[in-house]
Amino acid sequence: MAIAGLLVRVLSGQAEEVEAAIGAMPEMTTYGVHHDNHLVVVADAPHEKMEILFRQVRDVPGVLTCAVTSMTLEDELFPE
């Protein structure tokens, strides 16, 4: 499994709806709304699936940009 940290910028006033939508995705954990319009999100999924998750986030209504801040595959290569 890979783990990716995401910083999601949302359109003004839509943070709560976007957080709820992303939080409902099984591989996603949200870590709150910051600076009014940013969500911190962590994706936990096989690396092959990561991009589709990124795209799903990007396609949530109200999402303006989705930046990836980290991606680790260590657990796939060196399992616990």
Binding site: I3, A4, G5, L6, L7, T29, Y31, H34, H35, H38, V40, V41, V42, D44, A67, T69, S70, T72, E74, D75
Partner: peptide
């Protein structure tokens, strides 16, 4: 721990 670290890195980008 890894997930928490990923969240911390994202937060630090803010």
């Amino acid at each position: 721990f890894l997930k928490g670290s990923a969240a911390a890195v994202a937060l630090s980008a803010l």
